[in-house]
Design a protein around this nucleic acid. Structure first.
Lengths: 290, 290
DNA sequence: CGTCGACTGAAAATTTCTTTTCATGACAGT
DNA sequence: ACTGTCATGAAAAGAAATTTTCAGTCGACG
Protein backbone atom coordinates (compact mmCIF):
# COMPACT_ATOMS: atom_id res chain seq x y z
CA UNK A 1 0.00 0.00 0.00
CA UNK A 2 1.08 3.51 -0.71
CA UNK A 3 0.75 6.48 1.62
CA UNK A 4 1.68 8.93 -1.11
CA UNK A 5 0.64 12.50 -0.49
CA UNK A 6 -1.80 11.92 2.34
CA UNK A 7 -0.69 13.17 5.70
CA UNK A 8 0.09 10.77 8.47
CA UNK A 9 -2.84 12.20 10.32
CA UNK A 10 -5.13 11.35 7.42
CA UNK A 11 -3.80 7.83 7.28
CA UNK A 12 -4.38 7.28 10.96
CA UNK A 13 -7.92 8.57 10.71
CA UNK A 14 -8.77 6.46 7.71
CA UNK A 15 -7.47 3.35 9.43
CA UNK A 16 -8.93 4.11 12.82
CA UNK A 17 -11.73 1.63 12.41
CA UNK A 18 -9.48 -1.36 11.92
CA UNK A 19 -7.23 -0.54 14.86
CA UNK A 20 -7.25 -2.68 18.00
CA UNK A 21 -7.68 -1.33 21.50
CA UNK A 22 -4.00 -0.74 22.26
CA UNK A 23 -3.49 0.67 18.78
CA UNK A 24 -6.37 3.12 19.19
CA UNK A 25 -4.85 4.20 22.46
CA UNK A 26 -1.58 4.81 20.66
CA UNK A 27 -3.28 6.62 17.80
CA UNK A 28 -5.04 8.95 20.23
CA UNK A 29 -1.76 9.71 21.85
CA UNK A 30 -0.16 10.49 18.52
CA UNK A 31 -2.99 12.69 17.31
CA UNK A 32 -2.95 14.55 20.57
CA UNK A 33 -0.34 17.23 20.00
CA UNK A 34 0.24 16.03 16.47
CA UNK A 35 2.73 15.85 14.88
CA UNK A 36 5.23 16.70 17.57
CA UNK A 37 4.36 13.71 19.71
CA UNK A 38 5.69 11.43 17.01
CA UNK A 39 9.12 12.99 16.98
CA UNK A 40 10.76 10.78 19.60
CA UNK A 41 11.91 7.20 19.51
CA UNK A 42 9.61 4.24 19.37
CA UNK A 43 10.30 3.65 23.03
CA UNK A 44 9.32 7.16 23.98
CA UNK A 45 6.03 7.24 22.16
CA UNK A 46 5.19 3.75 23.39
CA UNK A 47 5.68 4.93 26.94
CA UNK A 48 3.70 8.10 26.38
CA UNK A 49 0.81 6.13 25.00
CA UNK A 50 1.11 3.43 27.65
CA UNK A 51 1.55 0.61 25.18
CA UNK A 52 4.41 -1.69 24.26
CA UNK A 53 6.87 -1.09 21.48
CA UNK A 54 5.66 -4.02 19.39
CA UNK A 55 2.25 -2.40 19.32
CA UNK A 56 3.80 0.68 17.76
CA UNK A 57 5.55 -1.36 15.11
CA UNK A 58 2.43 -3.33 14.32
CA UNK A 59 0.34 -0.23 13.98
CA UNK A 60 2.64 1.71 11.70
CA UNK A 61 2.91 -1.35 9.49
CA UNK A 62 -0.83 -1.67 9.49
CA UNK A 63 -0.99 1.96 8.40
CA UNK A 64 1.10 1.07 5.40
CA UNK A 65 4.55 2.18 6.44
CA UNK A 66 7.53 -0.06 6.01
CA UNK A 67 8.57 0.30 9.62
CA UNK A 68 8.95 2.86 12.33
CA UNK A 69 11.80 4.76 10.63
CA UNK A 70 9.69 5.06 7.51
CA UNK A 71 6.76 6.33 9.57
CA UNK A 72 8.95 8.87 11.28
CA UNK A 73 10.48 10.06 8.03
CA UNK A 74 7.01 10.95 6.80
CA UNK A 75 6.32 12.76 10.02
CA UNK A 76 9.53 14.73 9.68
CA UNK A 77 8.53 15.84 6.23
CA UNK A 78 5.26 17.08 7.61
CA UNK A 79 6.91 18.96 10.41
CA UNK A 80 9.20 20.53 7.89
CA UNK A 81 6.30 21.54 5.69
CA UNK A 82 4.55 23.04 8.69
CA UNK A 83 7.48 24.99 9.98
CA UNK A 84 9.38 26.03 6.96
CA UNK A 85 8.24 29.06 5.13
CA UNK A 86 6.39 29.79 1.94
CA UNK A 87 9.42 31.06 0.11
CA UNK A 88 11.18 27.73 0.49
CA UNK A 89 9.15 26.41 -2.32
CA UNK A 90 9.92 28.61 -5.22
CA UNK A 91 9.59 26.52 -8.30
CA UNK A 92 10.92 27.75 -11.56
CA UNK A 93 12.13 31.29 -11.85
CA UNK A 94 12.05 33.10 -15.10
CA UNK A 95 11.18 30.45 -17.63
CA UNK A 96 13.25 32.12 -20.28
CA UNK A 97 16.36 32.03 -18.12
CA UNK A 98 18.29 28.79 -18.26
CA UNK A 99 18.98 27.18 -14.91
CA UNK A 100 22.62 28.05 -14.87
CA UNK A 101 22.23 31.71 -15.66
CA UNK A 102 23.70 34.01 -13.08
CA UNK A 103 20.29 35.52 -12.42
CA UNK A 104 18.89 32.20 -11.36
CA UNK A 105 21.85 31.31 -9.24
CA UNK A 106 21.67 34.68 -7.59
CA UNK A 107 17.97 34.31 -7.00
CA UNK A 108 18.53 30.96 -5.33
CA UNK A 109 21.20 32.39 -3.07
CA UNK A 110 19.13 35.41 -2.10
CA UNK A 111 16.16 33.22 -1.36
CA UNK A 112 18.22 31.06 0.88
CA UNK A 113 19.74 34.09 2.59
CA UNK A 114 16.34 35.61 3.19
CA UNK A 115 14.92 32.42 4.52
CA UNK A 116 17.79 31.79 6.89
CA UNK A 117 17.94 35.36 8.05
CA UNK A 118 14.26 35.39 8.88
CA UNK A 119 14.53 32.09 10.65
CA UNK A 120 17.27 33.40 12.88
CA UNK A 121 15.71 36.79 13.32
CA UNK A 122 13.75 37.34 16.47
CA UNK A 123 10.64 39.37 15.81
CA UNK A 124 10.97 40.73 19.33
CA UNK A 125 14.33 42.21 18.37
CA UNK A 126 12.80 43.73 15.30
CA UNK A 127 9.93 45.21 17.28
CA UNK A 128 12.27 46.59 19.92
CA UNK A 129 14.34 48.34 17.30
CA UNK A 130 11.19 49.74 15.75
CA UNK A 131 10.12 51.29 19.02
CA UNK A 132 13.61 52.68 19.62
CA UNK A 133 13.64 54.29 16.20
CA UNK A 134 10.12 55.57 16.66
CA UNK A 135 11.02 57.51 19.76
CA UNK A 136 11.41 61.06 18.55
CA UNK A 137 13.20 62.15 21.66
CA UNK A 138 16.17 60.06 20.61
CA UNK A 139 18.59 61.34 18.02
CA UNK A 140 19.49 58.90 15.25
CA UNK A 141 22.97 58.47 13.83
CA UNK A 142 23.68 56.29 10.81
CA UNK A 143 27.07 55.00 9.81
CA UNK A 144 28.37 52.51 7.29
CA UNK A 145 31.66 51.40 5.82
CA UNK A 146 33.02 51.56 2.33
CA UNK A 147 30.43 49.21 0.85
CA UNK A 148 27.70 49.50 3.42
CA UNK A 149 27.78 53.27 3.35
CA UNK A 150 25.13 53.20 0.66
CA UNK A 151 22.82 51.20 2.92
CA UNK A 152 23.31 53.66 5.75
CA UNK A 153 22.53 56.47 3.37
CA UNK A 154 19.40 54.73 2.12
CA UNK A 155 18.15 54.18 5.65
CA UNK A 156 19.03 57.71 6.63
CA UNK A 157 17.28 59.28 3.64
CA UNK A 158 14.02 57.63 4.56
CA UNK A 159 14.20 58.22 8.28
CA UNK A 160 15.00 61.83 7.66
CA UNK A 161 11.63 62.16 5.96
CA UNK A 162 9.82 60.29 8.68
CA UNK A 163 11.24 61.97 11.74
CA UNK A 164 13.54 64.77 12.94
CA UNK A 165 16.96 64.51 14.54
CA UNK A 166 18.59 62.12 12.08
CA UNK A 167 22.22 62.36 11.13
CA UNK A 168 24.29 60.52 8.55
CA UNK A 169 27.92 60.09 9.51
CA UNK A 170 30.39 60.51 6.70
CA UNK A 171 31.99 57.22 5.75
CA UNK A 172 35.33 58.81 6.46
CA UNK A 173 36.13 57.56 9.91
CA UNK A 174 38.34 60.47 10.86
CA UNK A 175 35.30 62.64 11.51
CA UNK A 176 33.56 60.11 13.72
CA UNK A 177 34.88 61.30 17.08
CA UNK A 178 33.18 64.66 16.58
CA UNK A 179 29.87 63.00 15.95
CA UNK A 180 30.27 60.86 19.03
CA UNK A 181 30.86 64.00 21.01
CA UNK A 182 27.44 65.31 20.00
CA UNK A 183 25.56 62.24 21.06
CA UNK A 184 23.32 62.40 24.09
CA UNK A 185 22.17 59.67 26.41
CA UNK A 186 19.38 57.72 24.74
CA UNK A 187 20.45 58.57 21.21
CA UNK A 188 20.76 55.69 18.81
CA UNK A 189 23.70 54.78 16.63
CA UNK A 190 22.86 52.52 13.73
CA UNK A 191 25.96 50.75 12.48
CA UNK A 192 26.36 48.81 9.26
CA UNK A 193 29.40 46.59 9.50
CA UNK A 194 29.88 43.46 7.49
CA UNK A 195 33.09 41.65 6.72
CA UNK A 196 35.70 42.75 6.38
CA UNK A 197 34.93 44.65 9.52
CA UNK A 198 36.21 48.14 9.94
CA UNK A 199 38.58 48.62 12.81
CA UNK A 200 37.28 52.05 13.73
CA UNK A 201 33.70 50.86 14.17
CA UNK A 202 34.55 49.45 17.56
CA UNK A 203 36.11 52.71 18.67
CA UNK A 204 33.08 54.62 17.48
CA UNK A 205 30.72 52.21 19.20
CA UNK A 206 32.69 52.44 22.41
CA UNK A 207 32.68 56.24 22.31
CA UNK A 208 28.94 56.25 21.63
CA UNK A 209 28.33 53.90 24.53
CA UNK A 210 30.29 56.16 26.83
CA UNK A 211 27.99 59.01 25.83
CA UNK A 212 25.02 56.85 26.77
CA UNK A 213 23.86 56.02 23.26
CA UNK A 214 22.13 52.79 22.31
CA UNK A 215 23.64 50.85 19.44
CA UNK A 216 21.93 48.87 16.72
CA UNK A 217 24.16 46.84 14.44
CA UNK A 218 23.56 45.34 11.03
CA UNK A 219 26.17 42.67 10.50
CA UNK A 220 26.67 39.29 8.92
CA UNK A 221 26.35 35.86 10.39
CA UNK A 222 29.92 35.96 11.66
CA UNK A 223 29.17 39.09 13.62
CA UNK A 224 31.08 42.32 13.61
CA UNK A 225 33.09 42.94 16.81
CA UNK A 226 30.95 46.04 17.23
CA UNK A 227 27.92 43.79 17.74
CA UNK A 228 29.21 42.96 21.21
CA UNK A 229 28.61 46.54 22.21
CA UNK A 230 25.16 46.70 20.68
CA UNK A 231 21.77 46.68 22.30
CA UNK A 232 20.36 44.95 19.24
CA UNK A 233 22.08 43.21 16.33
CA UNK A 234 20.71 41.97 13.04
CA UNK A 235 22.70 39.03 11.77
CA UNK A 236 22.00 38.91 8.08
CA UNK A 237 23.04 36.23 5.63
CA UNK A 238 25.11 37.81 2.93
CA UNK A 239 26.49 34.96 0.90
CA UNK A 240 26.09 35.10 -2.85
CA UNK A 241 27.59 33.20 -5.78
CA UNK A 242 29.92 36.11 -6.19
CA UNK A 243 33.24 37.53 -5.11
CA UNK A 244 31.15 40.10 -3.26
CA UNK A 245 28.79 39.79 -0.38
CA UNK A 246 25.13 40.49 -0.96
CA UNK A 247 23.36 43.41 0.68
CA UNK A 248 19.95 42.48 -0.60
CA UNK A 249 18.65 40.95 2.60
CA UNK A 250 20.09 43.76 4.69
CA UNK A 251 18.20 46.22 2.54
CA UNK A 252 15.12 44.11 3.00
CA UNK A 253 15.30 44.47 6.75
CA UNK A 254 16.02 48.17 6.46
CA UNK A 255 12.92 48.65 4.34
CA UNK A 256 10.79 46.63 6.71
CA UNK A 257 12.06 48.78 9.57
CA UNK A 258 11.28 51.95 7.66
CA UNK A 259 7.73 50.85 7.09
CA UNK A 260 7.26 49.66 10.66
CA UNK A 261 8.57 52.91 12.12
CA UNK A 262 6.51 54.99 9.76
CA UNK A 263 3.48 52.95 10.62
CA UNK A 264 3.94 53.23 14.36
CA UNK A 265 4.17 57.02 14.22
CA UNK A 266 1.88 57.66 11.30
CA UNK A 267 -0.07 60.51 12.86
CA UNK A 268 3.04 62.54 13.44
CA UNK A 269 4.69 61.46 10.21
CA UNK A 270 1.73 62.33 8.05
CA UNK A 271 1.88 66.06 8.66
CA UNK A 272 5.61 66.02 8.37
CA UNK A 273 5.54 64.36 4.97
CA UNK A 274 2.94 66.76 3.65
CA UNK A 275 5.07 69.71 4.68
CA UNK A 276 8.08 68.09 3.08
CA UNK A 277 6.27 67.42 -0.16
CA UNK A 278 5.40 71.09 -0.24
CA UNK A 279 9.03 72.02 0.24
CA UNK A 280 10.13 69.78 -2.61
CA UNK A 281 7.60 71.32 -4.91
CA UNK A 282 8.74 74.75 -3.93
CA UNK A 283 12.35 73.88 -4.63
CA UNK A 284 11.41 72.79 -8.10
CA UNK A 285 9.58 76.01 -8.70
CA UNK A 286 12.62 77.94 -7.60
CA UNK A 287 14.79 76.04 -10.00
CA UNK A 288 12.38 76.03 -12.92
CA UNK A 289 10.29 79.12 -12.71
CA UNK A 290 7.43 79.46 -15.14
CA UNK B 1 27.14 24.29 31.76
CA UNK B 2 23.49 24.98 31.34
CA UNK B 3 21.77 25.87 28.13
CA UNK B 4 18.60 26.85 29.93
CA UNK B 5 16.12 28.92 28.01
CA UNK B 6 18.28 29.94 25.08
CA UNK B 7 17.36 28.37 21.81
CA UNK B 8 19.68 25.93 20.14
CA UNK B 9 20.05 28.46 17.37
CA UNK B 10 21.21 31.06 19.86
CA UNK B 11 23.67 28.66 21.37
CA UNK B 12 25.12 27.83 18.00
CA UNK B 13 25.46 31.48 17.16
CA UNK B 14 27.10 32.38 20.40
CA UNK B 15 29.62 29.59 20.00
CA UNK B 16 30.17 30.10 16.30
CA UNK B 17 33.49 31.79 16.86
CA UNK B 18 35.05 28.90 18.71
CA UNK B 19 33.95 26.27 16.24
CA UNK B 20 36.42 24.58 13.95
CA UNK B 21 36.08 24.33 10.20
CA UNK B 22 34.19 21.07 10.13
CA UNK B 23 32.04 22.19 13.02
CA UNK B 24 31.18 25.44 11.28
CA UNK B 25 30.23 23.45 8.25
CA UNK B 26 27.96 21.36 10.41
CA UNK B 27 26.53 24.41 12.14
CA UNK B 28 25.71 25.97 8.78
CA UNK B 29 23.99 22.83 7.74
CA UNK B 30 21.95 22.77 10.91
CA UNK B 31 20.98 26.42 10.71
CA UNK B 32 20.02 25.95 7.13
CA UNK B 33 16.42 24.96 7.37
CA UNK B 34 16.55 25.14 11.13
CA UNK B 35 15.32 23.41 13.20
CA UNK B 36 14.02 20.68 10.95
CA UNK B 37 17.45 19.68 9.71
CA UNK B 38 18.35 18.56 13.22
CA UNK B 39 15.48 16.16 13.49
CA UNK B 40 17.20 13.07 12.10
CA UNK B 41 19.80 10.80 13.57
CA UNK B 42 23.38 11.75 14.14
CA UNK B 43 24.32 9.70 11.11
CA UNK B 44 21.87 11.54 8.89
CA UNK B 45 22.86 15.04 9.85
CA UNK B 46 26.54 14.17 9.64
CA UNK B 47 26.00 12.98 6.10
CA UNK B 48 23.98 16.04 5.18
CA UNK B 49 26.69 18.32 6.48
CA UNK B 50 29.47 16.26 4.95
CA UNK B 51 31.26 15.67 8.22
CA UNK B 52 31.87 12.62 10.38
CA UNK B 53 29.69 11.55 13.27
CA UNK B 54 32.38 12.26 15.86
CA UNK B 55 32.40 15.85 14.70
CA UNK B 56 28.71 16.06 15.49
CA UNK B 57 29.21 14.67 18.95
CA UNK B 58 32.15 16.95 19.66
CA UNK B 59 30.24 20.01 18.54
CA UNK B 60 27.09 19.39 20.54
CA UNK B 61 29.24 18.77 23.59
CA UNK B 62 31.15 21.96 22.89
CA UNK B 63 27.80 23.74 22.73
CA UNK B 64 27.10 22.55 26.24
CA UNK B 65 24.84 19.59 25.65
CA UNK B 66 25.42 16.31 27.39
CA UNK B 67 25.35 14.36 24.16
CA UNK B 68 23.49 14.09 20.94
CA UNK B 69 20.26 12.82 22.51
CA UNK B 70 20.30 15.79 24.85
CA UNK B 71 20.87 18.14 21.95
CA UNK B 72 18.05 16.59 20.01
CA UNK B 73 15.70 16.73 22.96
CA UNK B 74 16.20 20.50 23.10
CA UNK B 75 15.54 20.73 19.41
CA UNK B 76 12.36 18.73 19.79
CA UNK B 77 11.17 21.08 22.49
CA UNK B 78 11.75 23.98 20.17
CA UNK B 79 9.91 22.35 17.34
CA UNK B 80 7.08 21.68 19.71
CA UNK B 81 7.06 25.27 20.89
CA UNK B 82 7.11 26.45 17.32
CA UNK B 83 4.28 24.31 16.16
CA UNK B 84 1.97 24.24 19.10
CA UNK B 85 2.38 27.86 20.14
CA UNK B 86 1.89 30.24 17.26
CA UNK B 87 2.69 33.30 19.33
CA UNK B 88 6.02 31.79 20.27
CA UNK B 89 9.26 33.19 19.04
CA UNK B 90 9.10 31.45 15.73
CA UNK B 91 5.66 32.54 14.74
CA UNK B 92 7.00 34.21 11.64
CA UNK B 93 6.06 32.42 8.45
CA UNK B 94 2.97 31.72 10.46
CA UNK B 95 1.48 28.49 9.33
CA UNK B 96 -2.12 29.29 10.17
CA UNK B 97 -2.30 33.04 9.77
CA UNK B 98 0.27 33.85 7.13
CA UNK B 99 1.70 37.30 6.91
CA UNK B 100 0.63 39.02 10.05
CA UNK B 101 3.97 40.44 11.06
CA UNK B 102 5.40 43.14 8.88
CA UNK B 103 8.43 40.96 8.16
CA UNK B 104 6.18 38.28 6.73
CA UNK B 105 4.20 40.65 4.62
CA UNK B 106 7.36 42.25 3.33
CA UNK B 107 8.92 38.92 2.51
CA UNK B 108 5.85 37.88 0.58
CA UNK B 109 5.87 41.11 -1.38
CA UNK B 110 9.57 40.93 -2.18
CA UNK B 111 9.23 37.33 -3.28
CA UNK B 112 6.46 38.27 -5.60
CA UNK B 113 8.40 41.25 -6.92
CA UNK B 114 11.46 39.14 -7.57
CA UNK B 115 9.47 36.47 -9.30
CA UNK B 116 7.66 38.86 -11.56
CA UNK B 117 10.73 40.88 -12.33
CA UNK B 118 12.67 37.80 -13.34
CA UNK B 119 9.81 36.54 -15.41
CA UNK B 120 9.64 39.78 -17.35
CA UNK B 121 13.39 40.20 -17.56
CA UNK B 122 15.02 39.15 -20.77
CA UNK B 123 18.35 37.45 -20.10
CA UNK B 124 19.57 38.78 -23.43
CA UNK B 125 19.10 42.31 -22.10
CA UNK B 126 20.98 41.39 -18.97
CA UNK B 127 23.82 39.85 -20.94
CA UNK B 128 24.02 42.83 -23.28
CA UNK B 129 24.31 45.19 -20.38
CA UNK B 130 27.01 43.00 -18.88
CA UNK B 131 29.09 43.18 -22.00
CA UNK B 132 28.58 46.92 -22.25
CA UNK B 133 29.74 47.40 -18.67
CA UNK B 134 32.64 45.03 -19.20
CA UNK B 135 34.04 47.09 -22.01
CA UNK B 136 36.85 49.04 -20.42
CA UNK B 137 37.09 51.45 -23.28
CA UNK B 138 33.74 52.89 -22.28
CA UNK B 139 33.48 55.33 -19.41
CA UNK B 140 30.74 54.65 -16.88
CA UNK B 141 28.55 57.31 -15.31
CA UNK B 142 26.12 56.53 -12.51
CA UNK B 143 23.26 58.72 -11.43
CA UNK B 144 20.30 58.36 -9.12
CA UNK B 145 17.63 60.49 -7.57
CA UNK B 146 16.88 61.35 -4.00
CA UNK B 147 16.04 57.83 -2.95
CA UNK B 148 17.80 55.87 -5.65
CA UNK B 149 21.02 57.78 -5.14
CA UNK B 150 22.11 55.16 -2.64
CA UNK B 151 21.66 52.44 -5.26
CA UNK B 152 23.72 54.37 -7.77
CA UNK B 153 26.40 54.82 -5.17
CA UNK B 154 26.37 51.13 -4.31
CA UNK B 155 26.73 50.16 -7.95
CA UNK B 156 29.42 52.74 -8.48
CA UNK B 157 31.46 51.70 -5.46
CA UNK B 158 31.70 48.15 -6.73
CA UNK B 159 32.35 48.99 -10.35
CA UNK B 160 35.04 51.39 -9.30
CA UNK B 161 36.90 48.46 -7.79
CA UNK B 162 36.36 46.25 -10.79
CA UNK B 163 37.29 48.63 -13.57
CA UNK B 164 38.65 52.11 -14.31
CA UNK B 165 36.81 55.10 -15.71
CA UNK B 166 33.79 55.09 -13.43
CA UNK B 167 32.11 58.26 -12.25
CA UNK B 168 29.33 58.90 -9.77
CA UNK B 169 27.21 61.92 -10.53
CA UNK B 170 26.20 63.97 -7.53
CA UNK B 171 22.50 63.64 -6.85
CA UNK B 172 22.26 67.39 -7.14
CA UNK B 173 20.98 67.84 -10.67
CA UNK B 174 22.47 71.28 -11.15
CA UNK B 175 25.88 69.77 -11.77
CA UNK B 176 24.70 67.25 -14.33
CA UNK B 177 25.26 69.33 -17.48
CA UNK B 178 28.99 69.48 -16.74
CA UNK B 179 29.17 65.71 -16.50
CA UNK B 180 27.28 65.37 -19.78
CA UNK B 181 29.85 67.60 -21.36
CA UNK B 182 32.62 65.18 -20.42
CA UNK B 183 30.96 62.13 -21.91
CA UNK B 184 32.41 60.58 -25.05
CA UNK B 185 30.76 58.49 -27.70
CA UNK B 186 30.39 54.95 -26.43
CA UNK B 187 30.35 55.93 -22.77
CA UNK B 188 27.55 54.54 -20.68
CA UNK B 189 25.18 56.42 -18.44
CA UNK B 190 23.44 54.27 -15.84
CA UNK B 191 20.31 55.96 -14.61
CA UNK B 192 18.23 54.99 -11.58
CA UNK B 193 14.83 56.57 -11.85
CA UNK B 194 11.75 55.22 -10.17
CA UNK B 195 8.54 57.03 -9.37
CA UNK B 196 8.15 59.79 -8.76
CA UNK B 197 10.39 60.41 -11.72
CA UNK B 198 12.80 63.29 -11.66
CA UNK B 199 12.20 65.85 -14.30
CA UNK B 200 15.86 66.52 -14.96
CA UNK B 201 16.65 62.90 -15.76
CA UNK B 202 15.21 63.30 -19.23
CA UNK B 203 17.33 66.38 -19.88
CA UNK B 204 20.42 64.55 -18.69
CA UNK B 205 19.61 61.53 -20.82
CA UNK B 206 19.03 63.69 -23.84
CA UNK B 207 22.30 65.51 -23.36
CA UNK B 208 24.13 62.22 -22.93
CA UNK B 209 22.61 60.83 -26.09
CA UNK B 210 23.74 63.89 -28.00
CA UNK B 211 27.27 63.17 -26.88
CA UNK B 212 26.93 59.63 -28.22
CA UNK B 213 26.58 57.86 -24.88
CA UNK B 214 24.58 54.67 -24.39
CA UNK B 215 21.99 54.73 -21.66
CA UNK B 216 20.94 52.00 -19.26
CA UNK B 217 17.94 52.70 -17.06
CA UNK B 218 16.73 51.06 -13.87
CA UNK B 219 13.10 51.96 -13.46
CA UNK B 220 9.83 50.55 -12.23
CA UNK B 221 7.10 48.75 -14.09
CA UNK B 222 5.48 52.03 -15.12
CA UNK B 223 8.71 53.17 -16.75
CA UNK B 224 10.56 56.41 -16.29
CA UNK B 225 10.29 58.77 -19.26
CA UNK B 226 14.06 58.48 -19.50
CA UNK B 227 13.65 54.82 -20.45
CA UNK B 228 12.49 55.86 -23.89
CA UNK B 229 15.95 57.22 -24.57
CA UNK B 230 17.71 54.16 -23.23
CA UNK B 231 19.48 51.38 -25.07
CA UNK B 232 18.49 48.99 -22.30
CA UNK B 233 15.98 49.31 -19.48
CA UNK B 234 15.39 47.15 -16.42
CA UNK B 235 11.80 47.36 -15.34
CA UNK B 236 11.77 46.23 -11.75
CA UNK B 237 8.76 45.53 -9.56
CA UNK B 238 8.93 47.80 -6.57
CA UNK B 239 5.67 47.36 -4.73
CA UNK B 240 5.78 46.75 -1.02
CA UNK B 241 3.22 46.80 1.78
CA UNK B 242 4.55 50.20 2.65
CA UNK B 243 4.20 53.87 1.95
CA UNK B 244 7.56 53.55 0.23
CA UNK B 245 8.65 51.64 -2.80
CA UNK B 246 11.03 48.76 -2.38
CA UNK B 247 14.53 48.84 -3.83
CA UNK B 248 15.36 45.28 -2.86
CA UNK B 249 14.87 43.74 -6.28
CA UNK B 250 16.69 46.60 -7.97
CA UNK B 251 19.63 45.97 -5.70
CA UNK B 252 19.37 42.30 -6.56
CA UNK B 253 19.84 43.03 -10.25
CA UNK B 254 22.66 45.43 -9.51
CA UNK B 255 24.49 42.77 -7.55
CA UNK B 256 23.94 40.20 -10.25
CA UNK B 257 25.36 42.64 -12.78
CA UNK B 258 28.37 43.32 -10.60
CA UNK B 259 29.14 39.65 -10.35
CA UNK B 260 28.58 39.02 -14.05
CA UNK B 261 30.84 41.90 -15.05
CA UNK B 262 33.50 40.91 -12.61
CA UNK B 263 33.30 37.36 -13.85
CA UNK B 264 33.57 38.29 -17.51
CA UNK B 265 36.70 40.32 -16.93
CA UNK B 266 38.21 38.36 -14.09
CA UNK B 267 41.74 38.23 -15.42
CA UNK B 268 41.99 41.98 -15.61
CA UNK B 269 40.00 42.55 -12.45
CA UNK B 270 42.09 40.19 -10.36
CA UNK B 271 45.28 42.20 -10.53
CA UNK B 272 43.37 45.40 -10.03
CA UNK B 273 41.75 44.15 -6.86
CA UNK B 274 45.02 42.94 -5.45
CA UNK B 275 46.58 46.33 -5.99
CA UNK B 276 43.58 47.96 -4.41
CA UNK B 277 43.71 45.70 -1.36
CA UNK B 278 47.32 46.75 -0.94
CA UNK B 279 46.34 50.38 -1.10
CA UNK B 280 43.66 49.91 1.53
CA UNK B 281 46.11 48.23 3.83
CA UNK B 282 48.56 51.03 3.30
CA UNK B 283 45.92 53.61 4.10
CA UNK B 284 45.25 51.89 7.36
CA UNK B 285 48.92 51.91 8.21
CA UNK B 286 49.07 55.60 7.46
CA UNK B 287 46.17 56.24 9.73
CA UNK B 288 47.27 54.01 12.53
CA UNK B 289 51.05 53.94 12.58
CA UNK B 290 52.78 51.52 14.92
C1' DC C 1 -16.68 -25.68 29.92
C1' DG C 2 -13.47 -26.03 26.20
C1' DT C 3 -11.52 -24.47 22.03
C1' DC C 4 -10.17 -21.11 18.89
C1' DG C 5 -8.46 -16.88 17.29
C1' DA C 6 -6.89 -12.50 18.05
C1' DC C 7 -4.45 -9.16 20.96
C1' DT C 8 -0.80 -7.97 23.81
C1' DG C 9 3.64 -7.24 25.93
C1' DA C 10 8.08 -9.56 27.81
C1' DA C 11 12.11 -10.72 26.15
C1' DA C 12 15.37 -12.08 22.64
C1' DA C 13 17.44 -11.05 18.32
C1' DT C 14 18.74 -7.80 15.22
C1' DT C 15 19.80 -3.55 13.52
C1' DT C 16 21.03 1.05 14.00
C1' DC C 17 22.74 4.76 16.41
C1' DT C 18 26.04 7.06 19.68
C1' DT C 19 30.29 7.52 21.84
C1' DT C 20 35.08 6.63 22.46
C1' DT C 21 39.54 5.56 20.91
C1' DC C 22 43.18 6.26 18.05
C1' DA C 23 46.02 7.16 13.82
C1' DT C 24 46.79 10.62 10.54
C1' DG C 25 47.73 15.02 8.76
C1' DA C 26 47.93 20.03 8.99
C1' DC C 27 49.96 23.78 11.04
C1' DA C 28 52.26 27.15 14.29
C1' DG C 29 56.10 28.00 17.01
C1' DT C 30 60.78 26.98 18.11
C1' DA D 1 63.75 20.59 10.33
C1' DC D 2 61.71 19.35 14.68
C1' DT D 3 58.12 19.26 18.06
C1' DG D 4 53.82 19.78 20.12
C1' DT D 5 49.06 20.92 19.45
C1' DC D 6 44.92 20.56 17.34
C1' DA D 7 41.38 18.99 14.08
C1' DT D 8 39.51 15.23 11.77
C1' DG D 9 37.49 10.89 10.45
C1' DA D 10 37.97 5.59 10.39
C1' DA D 11 36.91 2.14 13.07
C1' DA D 12 35.84 -0.21 17.37
C1' DA D 13 33.16 -0.37 21.42
C1' DG D 14 29.17 0.55 23.74
C1' DA D 15 24.32 1.86 24.07
C1' DA D 16 19.92 2.21 22.42
C1' DA D 17 16.46 1.51 19.34
C1' DT D 18 13.72 -1.53 16.29
C1' DT D 19 11.94 -5.78 14.96
C1' DT D 20 10.81 -10.48 15.72
C1' DT D 21 9.51 -14.32 18.44
C1' DC D 22 6.65 -16.28 21.51
C1' DA D 23 3.82 -17.27 25.48
C1' DG D 24 0.10 -15.55 28.23
C1' DT D 25 -4.54 -13.48 28.31
C1' DC D 26 -9.08 -12.55 27.00
C1' DG D 27 -13.44 -12.93 24.85
C1' DA D 28 -16.40 -15.24 21.33
C1' DC D 29 -18.70 -19.07 20.22
C1' DG D 30 -20.09 -23.73 20.11
Amino acid sequence: MTVASKTVSDVIHSHFGVLTRAEKQLAESLLDNYPVSGLGSITTIAENAGVSTPTVVRMVQKLGFKGYPDFQAHLHLEVEATISNPIAKHDRWAQNAPGTHILNRFADAIMSNLRQTLTDLDTATFDSVVSLLSDRKRGLYFVGGRITGALAEYFFTHMQVIRPATTLLSSNSSSWPQYALNMNAGDILIIFDIRRYEQEMVSLATAARKRGAEIVVFTDQWSSPAAKLARHAFRVRIEAPSAWDSSVVTLFIVEALIEAVQNSTWDETKERMKTLEGLFEQTKLFRKPG
